[in-house]
Simulated scan of single mutants.
Amino acid sequence: MNLPTILDALFPTGHQISINGHVLAGTANTASGSVAVLGTTDAAAIDHEIALFLAQHILATIQAHPRRPVIFLVDTQGQALSRAEELLCLNGSLAHLAACVDLARRLGHVSLSLVTGEAVSGGYLSFGLMADRAYALASAQVRVMDLKAMARVTKIDHAKLQELAVSAPTFAPGADNYQRMGAIEEIWPTPSASLLDSALAALLKAPGSSDRRMQAAQDRTGRLEAARIVDQILAA
């Protein structure tokens, strides 16, 4: 499904969103009013330019439209994998982007993200998973690292990781596994204005509500120890 079709399905009452290369930005109408829409398309590799573009538009929204909700549309193959990007400290630009999302939250801008294509590694972590609630289309591909790469990094045999991935979502790619781990709130069968309006209305009804991902992970048996360990640390 191409991006214009997705945008029309999510915002049938109108949108003013510009697509420039691998990035998009603009505003749209929803049942809850105007929202800022930012994101990436065509499996973009998040480099300095894209990270700073997204951060700039978040800051511009904060300044010009206090408390306006922000919708992130995510389609990224991850951070740009080049020596030049790393030497220029891409991690700093990604951290800046994540900090801007957090600043918006602290200043009353609720946010949600929707994975429309791919969502991989640092490209997803820096803004999509920073949103108050994360969603994904059923057709989306979500992963941090494929099992072959994970085997090289962890030194665990690839066959063993394949065996673990059958029962442990932390080792397995896929939007459904990220939902089990609590990272993704819900998987949508298709882009839907009604689903978006419902999710946005729930956020606006309880702005600043606590992050419930760890509890969701426990309830869905995706991560059984995270909530307990954090509670122990906070109580210490």
Rank of each mutant, 00 (worst) to 15 (best):
A28C: 04
L24A: 03
V101L: 06
G33L: 12
D132R: 02
L114P: 03
A98C: 07
P173M: 07
L3S: 07
Q215L: 14
P4D: 05
A193E: 09
G33Y: 13
L54G: 01
V37D: 11
K160D: 13
D197Y: 08
S34T: 15
A99M: 11
L161R: 01
V230W: 13
V23P: 11
S113N: 06
T41G: 09
I58N: 01
I19V: 15
L81H: 09
K160E: 13
A51E: 00
A44P: 04
F72T: 09
G208Q: 08
L52G: 05
G33C: 13
S192Q: 08
L38W: 01
I71A: 01
L59S: 13
A131N: 04
S18I: 13
N29F: 09
T40F: 06
A80R: 12
L234G: 11
L38V: 01
T221Y: 13
Q56I: 03
D157M: 11
L203N: 03
G108R: 05
A31R: 09
G117R: 03
A134G: 05
G92F: 09
H158C: 11
A80P: 06
Q215Y: 10
T27C: 07
Q79S: 15
F127N: 07
L103E: 14
M145N: 06
H65W: 10
T5D: 12
M150R: 06
L112S: 00
A36L: 11
L94K: 02
P189Q: 12
L97P: 01
L200S: 08
E186Q: 12
A206K: 14
A227I: 15
R106W: 10
A217H: 00
T30Y: 03
K205P: 14
L137E: 02
F171N: 04
L59K: 15
T76Q: 03
M150H: 07
T41I: 11
F53E: 06
A175C: 09
E185G: 07
L38S: 00
W188N: 04
R67F: 10
L88A: 15
T76Y: 01
A104Y: 00
T5E: 13
L161C: 07
L81S: 14
R212W: 04
G14F: 06
R180T: 04
L234Y: 12
L52A: 10
A227L: 15
I6R: 01
A172N: 10
I58S: 00
P191M: 04
L203T: 07
R152D: 13
V142Q: 05
